[in-house]
């Protein structure tokens, strides 16, 4: 079962980083109480955020964080895949390209030259893409960052050979389960919860903050209908576009609703004030 040569029979776990902030990997270290027990069941063979000591592959399960943004990434993810029996992506970057995928929708190189003094030293791709655009993925965990309970659940399910209990429905259902009064209905708060995948336990609404979609689109997200409603409740087109263009900006369900309000306005022959433009700030 184990890929290592000694008598250790624990399945091996590896953690890999691509373009990302490390927050999702940290969720594994965040499993403080469960971490010790977990290491009894799996052998953490490659996790450089935790230890420099690594064991060579192949690995039974690989957790992959981050998106593919460089030519080197494209090659490295193939190696990771080839060395992994199961490949689980963790987080919004790996699932949809992350906030760095905003570059996908502007003039190539324009962000790099705005951020770096010498962008000519960079060797990057024009787009930030999810892991699934490059290799076969066995399971995707969403969130920015992922929820550590969901991470544990996926690992425990893997160990027990069962299906993980991870929902594909809306954040709203988590609000209802914890009796959080809906902010959108009771306070006209712009909330993406109805079209966002559950998993966080409706964290933001529980502290009176509308969901900004960090878990990405839910299974059945109907984003156009929600944004039409939020527009009626007072959100401007620019606000809605910004709301949809964060950690999951490149997720198709979110992306397809960006600019819809302005496009409709243009087709009606209305002119928009500059303050309604999504590119401000």
């Amino acid at each position: 079962m184990s890929s290592t040569s000694n008598s250790d029979v624990r399945p091996t776990l590896a953690v890999w980083k691509f373009a990302s902030c490390d927050g999702c990997q940290l969720s594994l270290l965040d499993c403080e109480q469960e971490l010790l027990a977990l290491t009894g069941a799996v052998r953490i063979a490659h996790f450089t955020e935790m230890s420099r000591a690594t064991v060579s592959g192949p690995y039974d399960i690989s957790l992959v964080e981050g998106s593919i943004t460089t030519p080197d990434d494209v090659e490295r993810i193939k190696e990771v895949r080839a060395n992994s029996r199961h490949l689980v992506t963790i987080g919004a970057c790996a699932a949809s390209g992350g906030i760095q995928a905003l570059r996908n929708f502007v003039e190539p190189g324009s962000y790099a030259s705005a951020v770096y003094a010498h962008p000519e030293y960079l060797e990057t791709l024009e787009t930030s893409t999810p892991i699934s655009a490059h290799v076969a993925v066995d399971y995707e965990l969403h969130g920015c960052p992922i929820d550590r309970h969901q991470l544990l659940e996926v690992l425990l399910a893997f160990l027990a050979g069962r299906r993980p209990v991870v929902a594909g429905h809306s954040v709203c259902q988590e609000c209802k389960a914890r009796s959080t009064v809906c902010l959108l209905v009771s306070d006209k708060t712009a909330c993406l919860g109805p079209v966002t995948r559950a998993g966080c336990g409706a964290l933001c609404p529980s502290v009176a903050r509308g969901c900004f979609g960090c878990f990405g689109p839910s299974d059945c997200a109907n984003v156009a209908s929600l944004t039409a409603r939020l527009r009626l409740l007072g959100s401007s087109d620019g606000e809605l576009d910004r709301l949809l263009q964060t950690f999951n900006a490149a997720a198709p369900a979110f992306r397809s609703a960006v600019g819809v309000g302005r496009a409709a306005a243009v087709s009606l022959g209305q002119s928009r004030s500059p303050s309604h433009e999504g590119a401000e700030r």
């Binding site: 399910a157 809306s170 709203c172 259902q173 209802k176 109805p194 839910s218 109907n222 209908s225």
Partner: peptide, 22 residues
Amino acid sequence: LSCGNCTLVCPTCFCSDVHDTT
């Protein structure tokens, strides 16, 4: 929106799922 709010606030909707975890 397929958000499911209507079913969860409804006082008679009774659908449930069974979650087996280890």
